[in-house]
Computed example of a mutant assay.
Amino acid sequence: MPYLKSIFSSIIIMLLFSCNNLAQENPKQQSIINAKPVEVPIQNGLAKAYFASGCFWCVEAVYESVIGVEEVISGYAGGHTKNPTYASSNTGKTGHAEAVEVIYNPDIINFSTLVDVYFGSQNPTQVNGQGPDTGSQYRSIIFYLNEEQKQIIESKKENLSKKLNATIAAEVYPFQKFWVAEDYHQNYEKLHPEDPYVQNVSIPRLNKFKSKFPELLKDNKH
């Protein structure tokens, strides 16, 4: 099926589009990086946060296992084009990265802890990708909605850099817009547990996170 991922397809994409993997250097991209963040108001007691960290199938599964998170949606963010798709983002030319929208109850879990989940569920030093997924569309980005969130992100990033004695790859972007991905990407890990990519990449990444943060897991975790 055309939407199935594999290590081989990731390598092919990397080879085909490596020249475009610095999309964040595009002048149009700079206007996104330098923009004022768009605030997303709390609705019905729920807040939203946005993260990019490799394949959104993996990131969605991680955040869905966390207490206080009501829903996670896969999509695209961080780029300079409108209406990105899976195909267009994979070219590395749109500036967008695969991202997730995390809808959470701030009375149960706060933004700071969600950032801890972010760094604790990835290889924080891998540039332009996570695991076998490489390219600017898989790069790590944390989006902030206001100055307070930006300070939280920058502080945690700096502390992690000192702890690891390494450069942390995650970019820090002002949130602008989240584009919802195609329907077949939503809840992919749950709906396709036998998919080879899910078996070999998504589930191991999820299980690694679970072992590190047992106190943050829902009782009905999958």
Rank of each mutant, 00 (worst) to 15 (best):
P132K: 06
V201M: 10
I67L: 13
I108L: 12
I67P: 00
S140F: 13
I152A: 15
V102S: 08
V59S: 08
Y197P: 02
S9V: 09
F175V: 05
V40R: 09
L145M: 09
V66W: 07
H222C: 00
Q122R: 10
P132R: 03
E148N: 11
P41F: 04
A49R: 08
V100R: 03
K190F: 01
K48T: 10
I12A: 04
S121F: 02
F111A: 15
E154A: 09
V115T: 12
S88F: 06
K190Y: 04
Q126N: 05
G78V: 06
A35Q: 14
F213V: 04
F56R: 03
N128R: 15
Y3P: 00
P193G: 01
I168H: 14
V72Y: 08
E25M: 14
D183G: 10
K190Q: 15
A47D: 00
P124Q: 11
Y50H: 06
I108E: 07
F51H: 07
V127D: 10
D107Q: 09
N200M: 11
K208H: 13
P124R: 11
Y197T: 04
I203D: 02
K208Y: 04
G95A: 09
E64L: 12
Y50T: 08
Q122I: 15
S6N: 08
I142Y: 01
M14H: 00
E101V: 03
Q149Y: 07
K48H: 12
V62G: 02
G54D: 10
Y118F: 15
G75S: 03
Q43S: 07
K48P: 00
V201E: 08
L160Y: 14
A61P: 11
Q126Y: 03
E194T: 07
C55Y: 12
S89T: 13
E215S: 11
E147C: 02
F209E: 02
I11K: 10
Y104W: 11
F178M: 10
P174K: 09
L160C: 12
Q126R: 14
R205V: 02
S6F: 05
Q130N: 03
A77V: 04
K82Q: 14
G79T: 06
Q122K: 07
Q176L: 06
I11Y: 09
E147N: 14
A166V: 04
G68N: 10
L206D: 02
G79K: 05
P174F: 01
F143V: 10
V69T: 08
V38Q: 13
I7T: 14
A181P: 03
E182K: 12
E148L: 09
E39Q: 15
L217W: 13
K157I: 12
C58G: 08
K162Q: 10
N105R: 02
L216W: 09
Y173A: 05
S140Q: 13
Q176I: 08
A35N: 08
N187F: 15
V102T: 07
V100S: 04
I12F: 01
D133F: 01
T81V: 11
S18P: 00
V59R: 01
V117A: 04
E154L: 11
N200T: 12
E98R: 06
L46Y: 14
Q30M: 13
N165W: 00
S31Q: 15
E147L: 07
Y86G: 07
A61Y: 05
K163P: 05
C55N: 06
Y63R: 06
T91I: 13
K210I: 03
Y188W: 09
R139T: 14
A169W: 10
E148M: 11
N34I: 00
V62A: 02
F209L: 03
L22W: 14
V117D: 01
V127K: 13
P84I: 02
I103F: 04
